[in-house]
Design a protein around this nucleic acid. Structure first.
Length: 804
DNA sequence: AGCACGCCGACT
DNA sequence: GTCGGCGTGCTC
């Protein structure tokens, strides 16, 4: 095998295929598919992934591989195969599919460097170039690029005085420490020890320590253990008895923490019944997809933990996905307590280096459980025994950039490959999953009871229009306010939920209804109190706050909608005795802030936890007896066919925070549309009725799970161009697709303009379209030239989750 | 994506 | 006649 097929790190249609390279003799038999290499590509060097080996190249002339980056493949054969599958399913480039499977630290950085060919060449350099090389012989092109000397450099490069070198950097990476290992045979060392000078007691200690361990040990560790300095160790290195080594050390984000080991709990009858078929699958190496539908607080996590335990006993590995937002310290703790150092954790809170280290632990098989967000589904395990997706309905499992994959699909694909079970867990399953369970495609496991036999909290719906009519203009209804006062007196705790991030709200003229919008994006500006400015959340554009309406010159400019910050201010006014913890993107962005705030609430130091989405899931505080949802309908009015489903899910999740233990819980939902079925049914904890009602609507409007969706979005600076392209695409598809398929559009996207680019879309609803993928591929090919030259973009999202 | 090659307008 | 503009096409 002397030729390697390589996918190069150039994300473009024309380079989206394998290129053949000769394997230099020194790497023959060493290079295997899945390794990263550096290859010459045109005049430069790029990183690439070896995808196959072969005897003969397809082309006459092949260049040799320039460098080898890995000693063991970073992509297993399975992952390589998944890459191909992803490319097909999501219409992404091969290189993007591979890149998404690896930690960011492994992505190549490129540098273009200039170096002087010889000392003699210096004199011949252009006068403008000379100063750059005065004290050195090489420099980065980026230093020169923007200066006036750039043309002169070009000339000297042409003359052959300066050489251009392309450097591929493998950034970040391993953190190492200096270590030592024994460098001579046992006999020689014992011989040496007996001859050692009596004064050299410390050296003797070191040697016997090393003989004991018989492996490489960090110098620091020896010094600490034996209470000595590194001097005697250095002496032994000099005498040749020990050899210096580099030991890879891991940055462990949880190293300072102690986790009390926990034992499996006794399962309830219901839990035992649910886990039985899972354990059976694990035992018999069978693949099934289980939908575990369990109400909030029904103990799904314990079922996960015990299933994983079983997998580990069989010597296999498990992946558990959780939504980024619920990857809280509480969740991590439960896993660390149960599985100790067998767990790797992957989430966005880690630094690039930490993520890389966690990934390395997986690759080196030092852990057998991974808990992580979406991309952890690609963990390079080779002996998977179980995949779990907790909170299956969460939209964060769908990646909104290329490759636009859904972690659930990847998990099921891997489950089939490894012949192992996949568990999807939720208190509010997506209609897609629940429908599949009804049809028997997935196996349904139900947990109807809460673990502590506590009943579901009672829910009151408050009509905020009524409140307004009766003169209450505050954001707390009379009922919620009374209940809050009551809890504070009793010393119980309250969770307040507001579906509005940050401290911002929009602005409107009360006289003419004018709302300031961004001039680059078609979206209303939000008010940031901190800087007293109006900001666009899409492009960052800022404006001063108007004191007068630019339309009607009225001075009645008001701020509408309340962000968490405003609510916090209001709370301190009306309930000055209450201590409030506010949790949103602004207060949790700092590392460790999340945990700190939660601890403050858990310890009882604060009585009210006020927050956005991030407090809706997974939190479990025994003393919380009241949950308030300040505005339940903000989500309901989004232009998204899943709006009702999302509202139902959110209300159910939030309500689930109350009364999980001995004390009974109450929930108050404030809304302007109390009659809406998703609010009504959420208040009755009636998922089944919601499912039936929503399914009717989906069927009527031809939405999933009855139909598949595909969304084509076109964007360009010129609106006429956008409309015409979208129109042509729609026409083409109408002509080619079956009459059973609905083609909507071209219509303007819900956000019709972002960063001065207009956006139009075309939506397909289909049941069976075997030729859809090739047709969409053809469209991308047809417009490829325009996409490259004119900055036209066409994005295709199969099974979209966001309609924006 | 980058970069080289190549074919046309405004300068010494 | 040359420098440099960016259209075109290739990268194993």
């Amino acid at each position: 095998m002397s030729v390697a097929s390589v996918i190069v790190d150039v994300a473009a249609k024309q380079t989206d295929r394998a290129f053949d390279y000769a394997i230099p003799d020194k790497w023959k038999g060493i290079i295997v598919p899945g390794m990263r290499v550096v290859v010459p590509f045109g005049p430069r060097k790029v990183q690439g992934f070896v995808v196959a080996l072969k005897e003969e190249a397809e082309v006459k002339r092949v260049k040799p591989i320039a460098d080898l980056l890995d000693l063991t493949p970073v992509l297993t054969p399975e992952l390589l195969e998944i890459g191909h599958w992803l490319t097909e399913k999501t219409l992404c480039f091969m290189i993007s599919a591979f890149q998404v499977m690896l930690p960011a630290a492994m992505k190549a950085k490129y540098d273009k460097e200039l170096s002087l060919l010889s000392k003699e060449a210096y004199e011949q350099l252009h006068e403008q170039v000379k100063p750059f090389f005065q004290s050195r012989s090489s420099l980065k092109w980026s230093e020169v690029e923007k200066t006036a000397a750039a043309p002169a450099f070009h000339r000297d490069i042409q003359k052959g005085l300066i050489e251009v070198v392309y450097v591929v950097k493998n950034k970040g990476n391993k953190k190492t420490a200096k270590g030592v290992k024994l460098n001579q045979s046992l006999e020689e060392i014992q011989q040496f020890m007996s001859e050692l000078n009596k004064q050299a007691e410390k050296q003797k200690q070191v040697l016997s320590f090393m003989l004991n361990r018989n492996e490489e040990v960090a110098i620091k560790e020896i010094a600490e253990d034996l209470q000595i300095t590194s001097a005697p160790i250095k002496a032994l290195i000099n005498k040749g008895l020990l050899a210096e080594t580099e030991i890879e050390i891991y940055r462990d984000p949880y190293q300072d923490r102690y986790f009390t080991p926990s034992k499996p709990f006794q399962l309830t009858d219901e839990q035992a019944e649910a886990i039985a078929p899972i354990l059976q699958d694990i035992e018999e190496n069978l693949h099934d997809v289980f939908l575990m539908y369990g109400v909030t607080g029904s103990g799904k996590t314990e079922v996960y933990l015990q299933s994983i335990d079983q997998v580990l006993k069989k010597g296999k590995e498990a992946i558990m996905l959780v939504p980024e937002i619920s990857l809280t310290p509480q969740m991590v703790k439960r896993f660390k307590e149960r599985f100790g150092s067998k767990v790797a954790v992957l989430h966005s809170g880690l630094s690039t280096g930490e993520k890389y280290d966690e990934w390395r632990k997986i690759q080196r098989k030092e852990v057998s459980v991974v808990v992580g967000a979406r991309s952890a589904v690609f963990a390079p395990f080779e002996n998977l025994g179980l995949l779990i997706i907790d909170e299956e309905h969460e939209t964060s499992y769908k990646q909104e950039e290329n490759p636009r994959y859904h972690a659930r699909d990847v998990a099921i694909y891997r489950g089939q490959h490894h012949q192992c079970p996949v568990i999807l867990g939720s208190a509010t399953p997506t209609l897609e999953s629940f429908a599949r369970a009804q049809k028997g495609v997935y196996k349904l496991l139900t947990l109807k009871q809460r673990m502590n036999k506590s009943s579901m909290p009672s829910v009151d719906i408050v009509d905020m229009r009524e409140e307004l009519r009766s003169g209450n203009r505050s954001m707390f209804s009379t009922m919620l306010f009374e209940k809050m006062k009551d809890r504070l007196e009793k010393g119980e705790q309250i969770v307040l939920f507001l579906n509005k991030r940050g401290h911002s709200s929009f602005v409107m003229c009360r006289d003419c209804g004018y709302v300031p919008t961004c001039e680059h994006c078609e979206i209303s500006l939000t008010y940031h109190r901190y800087q007293n400015k109006l900001k666009c959340h899409y492009c960052g554009h800022e404006e001063h706050v108007h004191t007068e309406c630019p339309e009607c010159h009225s001075e009645h400019i008001r701020f509408f909608g309340s962000g968490t910050q405003k609510v916090e201010e209001e709370l301190t006014k009306v309930l000055p005795e209450a201590r409030v913890v506010r949790m949103d993107v602004d207060t949790t962005s700092r590392k460790g802030a999340h945990e700190k705030l939660l601890n403050k609430f858990a310890s009882g130091e604060a009585q009210i936890l006020l927050g956005t989405q991030m407090i809706a899931k997974g939190l479990d505080f025994p003393n919380v007896t009241l949950v308030g949802v300040l505005t339940a309908d903000t989500m309901l009015n989004l232009p998204d066919f899943r709006a009702s489903e999302k509202t139902f899910q959110l209300l159910t999740q939030v309500s689930g925070r109350a009364g999980r233990h001995k004390l009974p819980g109450e929930v108050v939902i404030q809304t302007y549309t109390p009659e809406h079925y998703s609010i009504q049914l959420a208040s009755q904890h009636d998922y089944d009725a919601f499912y039936k009602h929503e399914m009717e609507i989906r069927k009527m409007h031809k939405y999933p799970p009855f139909f598949y969706l595909a969304l084509v979005t076109v964007s360009h600076e010129n609106i006429a161009k956008v409309v015409s392209v979208t129109d042509k695409i729609s026409q083409y598809l109408r002509q080619k697709l079956s009459p059973q398929t609905t083609i909507l559009g071209p219509v303007a996207s819900p956000i019709a303009k972002i960063k001065d680019r207009y956006r139009y879309q075309c939506m397909l609803k289909y049941k069976l379209e075997p030729s859809l993928i090739p047709l969409l591929k053809y469209i991308l090919e047809r417009y490829q030239a325009e996409m490259q030259k004119e900055n036209l973009t066409i994005t295709i999202d199969l099974n979209p989750y966001s309609m924006m």
